[in-house]
Nucleic acid binder design. Sequence first.
RNA 1: GCUGGCGUAGCUCAAUCGGCAGAGCAGCGGUUUUGUAAACCGCAGGUUGGAGGUUCGAUUCCUCUCGCCAGCUCCA
Length: 642
Amino acid sequence: MNVSVNDGPSGDIQTGKTVSDALSELGIAGQDILAAKVDGAVVDLSRPLCGSPVVEPLRFDRAEGREVYRHSSTHIMAQAVKELFPTAQLTIGPALEDSFYYDFAFERPFTPEDLERIEERAAEIIKRNLTITRREFSKQDAIDFFRARGERYKVELIQGFPDGEPITAYAQGDFVDLCRGPHLPTTGSVGTIKLLNTAGAYWRGDERNPMLQRIYGTSFPTRAEVDAYLARLEEIKRRDHRKVGKELDLISIQDEIGPGLVLWHPKGAAVRLAIENFWREQHIRDGYELVYSPHTARLDLWKTSGHLDYYRENMFPSMKLEGSEYQLKPMNCPYHIMIYQSHLRSYRDLPIRYGELGTVYRYERTGVLHGLMRVRGFTQDDAHLFCRPDQMEHEVSRVLDFTFFVLQTFGFHQFEVFLSTRPKESVGGDEHWTLATSALEAALKSRNISFHLDPGGGAFYGPKIDIKIKDALGRSWQCSTVQVDFNNPERFELSYIGEDGKAHRPIMIHRALMGSIERFFGILIEHYGGAFPTWLAPVQAVVMNITDRQQDYVAAVVTQLKTAGFRAETDLRNEKIGFKIREAEKAKIPFMLVAGNREMQDGTLSVRGRSGSNLGNKTVAEVLDLLQAEVKYTQRELQHTH
RNA sequence: GCUGGCGUAGCUCAAUCGGCAGAGCAGCGGUUUUGUAAACCGCAGGUUGGAGGUUCGAUUCCUCUCGCCAGCUCCA
């Protein structure tokens, strides 16, 4: 048979030879080959070849290679656990992006000491360099085999598999695990396994099922790579917005006020104000009209909107007042709809775009609250567009352009886009869903945006596009969302008068760019590690005197900076300049302006940038120019036009 | 909500196998007038998350409760 290697040699190889034999006959060999893609499917190196396959060796530098590597790592860890704790039952153990886990049914949680022993044993199993072999079973044989080994959960899994298809397991030494594979050729192919932590996890992710003991770990070819990974985890901890938010005195969440309810301290509020000002300016430029709405409304409104039926578990309980029930708002849409409905609308009026920084309250279970990322009261940068069906695709495209512009201004440049389709619990006819979904898809395609499909991930009222941003540490965060809604116009009987003089139903589009200001702020804190770009920094410049004699001069300079619109502060404390610099560095203030006698005499300031850069002496006018140049989002806004 | 862990001064952390709760930083008062990441001296700071219980005595042990953390589930 003719075997060809992707971007490599090809040659005639005897049919039935394994992938690794074929590769080595073609002059491609090496311990670093983990698995291979054969005609697009990832397989074991021991897989026999037939036909005229295209083979692509997979190493650790490829995501598919890493997945196989980590997957085999979980088996090694599971083997170590079984050797040390024979009563532990196997369940499942997948690879994650940079790590892996394995869930065990065990009578008690694993302790840190257990983890150390398991890690040592895993290292030993790597050293044993056991061959990993694939075995096929019929369904009944597989059930009998795992039942005989006492692996109750494995038996349950197999029973759920379709009949008639072969079931595979992988063996290394005495250890056999039900697994689709593929796997590394030997346990010795793994470099270092490092166990990270333990946690409880429900069997099959269902809270009604028993709690299993999960062990997280990671593995890399070299110790140095493990160390780099651990260093990255440390960096993530160092940038944690809860820690930085406290250190920089940005926000607090206090017991007395309630979980998930955020206090914005003056410095955090200054950043928020900069965000909001930018947001409002840009929305007005982009053809939105800004509105405000109250935090509560009669329960009937939420009945009409369907939230009471479909969203109740996320809502605060209602309150009674003067014989009516009122509901704290979990969303802004009904209010915007009511504004739309306050007039008779013409087709000429559309599209109508209402934007609001609307604060909503949602009930979240205590266990899911997390700093600013998941709270109970938060402000959405919400907007609702009302348009004709023929305008829908164009409006969605505009929203996409606007979204990427805004996110880029905040310093995010990598995105993942998802198109989510109809979920099980949903309202509206099929034709509506199909129309809306294809409009979203068309808009994405018109902007050449590549996206993933998330089947069943839509809102109950319509399909949506979600945009996840990648932060400086490569983590993904869900922020932006664009959702088509055929349902609310129906429920509220929205209409506009068309060219034909008859009433027509408008289409509604919900969208948010940042999602929630709280979460977005948390992401910004971690993205910048608290060192915000100048346009967002709570204090943009601090002016400090060296001795008492420069007090008046410093105060005058700060007045000038403030008058020019900058957030500037004095530091006139009776402290040494080194101490003041240290404090300003810790506060991550972008510019430190020092005035001693020399500066006072020639009307200058000694300019120190964040993290020690010396920008020399500048006049006050030059400092103003410098700050102006730094606050450059206003320049970027010129690039955004429709 | 579930499993496990944790709540000590404004912050970061000690200590008490049940016997007067202690440091650094921050704060306040002095001294010092300072040149780019920490000057010196002093003072003050606490119902040890909250409520019960056991005990001569509880911050420590027990029960409940509130909150936080790591996950699970869910999500902006």
